[in-house]
Design a protein around this nucleic acid. Structure first.
Lengths: 204, 204
DNA sequence: GGAAATCCTGAACAACCGTTCAGGATGAAG
DNA sequence: CTTCATCCTGAACGGTTGTTCAGGATTTCC
């Protein structure tokens, strides 16, 4: 009972365990600073196993990114569908900065993904599709609000891109802990921008 | 006439040459992908000289970042002071995305700086002070516009942070070449947001 | 013009890291 | 129980990279 320290009873679980460990390491050290040894240690396995399952370090990072993408979107969809009307959903989006969503609000990871996307085509496409889905969700909420008369907009496309981009920009200050930004201020600033864009009445 | 291939006649110029080469390499490969050998090759010198002047690779990167910070700000100030009134200056800011400013509009470098700031305290402070100056310039323009009556705002502080953050967010799409973004659209989107925030009349 | 400080090079060193590999352990199939 | 494919490990290999260093070239200072 010496070798094969951790039984091979559930290779599928083992794969996911390694991917989650990879995400944890990336969160801490960044994509560029993540080593195979770090992943193995965080997952409690050997370096060899990481390479056995994913072929290379780049493979492990790519798979981890894919896992992240799925979870980001699942989290967002799930959270949004809990809200009743368009105003409530919009408000919920404004509160993403407060760390409610388990994965969506992990802004440091977003910065990592952006910089990786600069030099890795796979990461670029992953980010792009993720942003497309995020903007589509925002567009749906706004379109619904316009149709119910709760919101007003003469340029829905423009409003969507502006509000989505504003959230990214605010997220940078939050991730880098700029003194001008706090989670509450993040929410307030974005909510005020949404009011300006979408003709909402005074704060409820 | 064999050794000392490049004469030591101007060590100060040589330092700057190396720093500019460093910036060029970072622009292409990113902070994490920049090697001492790359810098030496780009500068046309030896690896040893890079280390001689800056002590370490990290030292060279830090100094290059400082050089960038200075140039960013000098460029911005210079460009802005060429404009007559607050509206013109604001418009000029909106056009930063079109690549007019020689260094300011280099959005890929911004993404690099942000991700480096996540894991390097020096880079974090450099970015923070740079952002502070950039927001101060924006605030001055808005304050001037409000005082002359060209602009209206009930919340100058909020408008400044929102418009500065929006520019960062739009810059991300531009740097990553997202299909929804072009330099012209960047300008249009930010300009429209400024109009919404600052109560400007119809497009001139 | 000579000595000392500075500038610069190319090679060598040492550490790090991704990947490979031979083989042991485990679970499934027959 | 035997056999075979799969899962897993730990050590070793090879390439890359930051840094050091001895010494040559150049400039500065007297």
């Amino acid at each position: 009972m010496a070798k094969g320290a951790l039984s091979a009873k559930a290779p599928e679980e083992r794969r996911e365990l390694i991917l989650r460990a990879t995400v944890a390491v990336v969160r801490e050290r960044g994509f560029a600073g993540t080593r195979v040894a770090d992943i193995a240690e965080a997952a409690g396995t050997s370096q060899g196993l990481v390479l056995y399952h994913f072929g290379s370090l780049a493979g492990a990072l790519d798979q981890a990114l894919t896992l992240l993408e799925d979870e980001f979107y699942v989290d967002l969809e799930h959270d949004l569908q809990e809200q009743k009307g368009p105003i409530e959903r919009l408000r919920h989006m404004a509160e993403l900065g407060t760390g409610l969503g388990p994965a969506v609000g992990d802004w440091r990871l977003w910065l990592e993904i952006w910089s990786r996307a600069l030099h890795d085509d796979d990461a670029r496409e992953t980010r792009e599709s993720l942003d497309r889905r995020w903007r589509a969700a925002l567009r749906d909420v706004i379109a619904e609000g316009v149709s119910t008369g709760d919101l007003r907009s003469t340029d829905v496309d423009g409003a969507v891109v502006r509000l989505a981009s504003l959230m990214d920009g605010l997220a940078i200050q939050l991730a880098l802990e700029d003194p001008v930004m706090t989670p509450d201020r993040f929410t307030d600033l974005w909510w005020e921008a949404a009011r300006l864009e979408l003709g909402m009445m005074t704060t409820s």
